[in-house]
Nucleic acid binder design. Sequence first.
DNA 1: GAAAACCGTGAACGCTGTTCGCAGTTTATA
DNA 2: TATAAACTGCGAACAGCGTTCACGGTTTTC
Lengths: 234, 234
Amino acid sequence: MALASSGSGAEGSGDRSIWTRPERGRRGPAPAHSRETIVGTAIQLADTGGLDAVSMRAVAAGLGMAVASLYRHLSSREDLLDLMVDRCVGELSPYPQGTGSWQDELTGLARRQLALFQRHPWLREAIGHGPKPGPHTLSYFDECLRILRPVRCGTAAKFEAIAMLTGVVSLFAAAVPAPDASSAPAPGFGDVDPAAYPHLVAAVAEPAGDAPRRDLFERTVRGLLTGLLADDPG
Amino acid sequence: MALASSGSGAEGSGDRSIWTRPERGRRGPAPAHSRETIVGTAIQLADTGGLDAVSMRAVAAGLGMAVASLYRHLSSREDLLDLMVDRCVGELSPYPQGTGSWQDELTGLARRQLALFQRHPWLREAIGHGPKPGPHTLSYFDECLRILRPVRCGTAAKFEAIAMLTGVVSLFAAAVPAPDASSAPAPGFGDVDPAAYPHLVAAVAEPAGDAPRRDLFERTVRGLLTGLLADDPG
DNA sequence: GAAAACCGTGAACGCTGTTCGCAGTTTATA
DNA sequence: TATAAACTGCGAACAGCGTTCACGGTTTTC
């Protein structure tokens, strides 16, 4: 059942997973760039221009190295994305000592996640393309499970709840991208037959009246948790 | 200088949006393929092999036409994706006559959305890349607003709730892909230092105990709606 | 000293979305 | 009816992408 065949360990750069591949071999010259530097450059590119800006050529150019050399450190672009994600998840730690109820703790964690998604908007897209959790992501799961320890329900349900919570936080991050740029002009209802969409036309005609209600995030998260982990007999 | 000066209307295929571009010009031979056929072929490709399988070359090949000819019907691949999304959203209509509370109606709609996401898994990815709603999507918004009419809160809040609901449904679709294939083997915790993730190790060691609780979807959706649209004075 | 393992790289392969120019067809106008 | 405009279809090409390969130089191991 072991992932890496139980036999011998890593065989150099032929490693399957980026999490078991050693950062450098035991022979040959020292690599000109560390894994840390490569991931940092990639994250910087993504923060600036989105995931599309993270091309192998762009990363290599940012480091002043040749494209092919990147493949001495990574076996694919996906490896790079996995490293980027895990390093950003690491920004959530250290996790504070828990004091309140598990709902309080989880909501607080969700709030820090929201800030993370806003710092790195590309995270929304980078996550979910296959679950290959790195060490920081495993720590994050561990922390969630620690918080959820008092909840009496199956492990699978807890994992589902964690995934759902992360998803909702990501949705909030998408809805409120950041405290800066001009918000997207809302779905652009161009010239359209008003008769076909009566409620829609009436709604957009209304005087908006949107005082962005406070604690919307918190109420939503708590409502979600209630639905997901309601305390009913298993 | 003006491309499409505000004066006259559409000038043939030079249209900005796919929703205003006429399907065919007023001169020249009749197109060999209808927009309907093109979108249908693309959806079929996506249903089979995901969004990556929807390359302009693949679509053209599926129709027995040359790649460049596709650009007589679409000004970009994004146009094609927009058309695909809108046509699938159209599968939600006709919308049944509402009978229950707005929570009941919205939950029912969410359930049909869930089925839609499961029929077309690529929808999750295709949605969200910029809001360019087509006629069916506008109808969907209209229907949601009709259901939400009794709820007393701002229009912006309602749109947020709709977006959030759609997102959560999409998350459920991702968690429960379909009633068929082997579910993803859960995040693969390979050989890992047990001491570093005590709660994680303890959790996966547990006997799972997952009777997939019934009505989890419904309870989650209702919990979310409660959080989002709780009836407090604006 | 020889051999194995490793780093860096230029050049290429196949793929992608998109554009250009040309030939043929249909319609509108004079 | 002749002519110009507008349109369809398409072969060929362009720039960009991720990835691979073969080769020379460097470091370690035997």
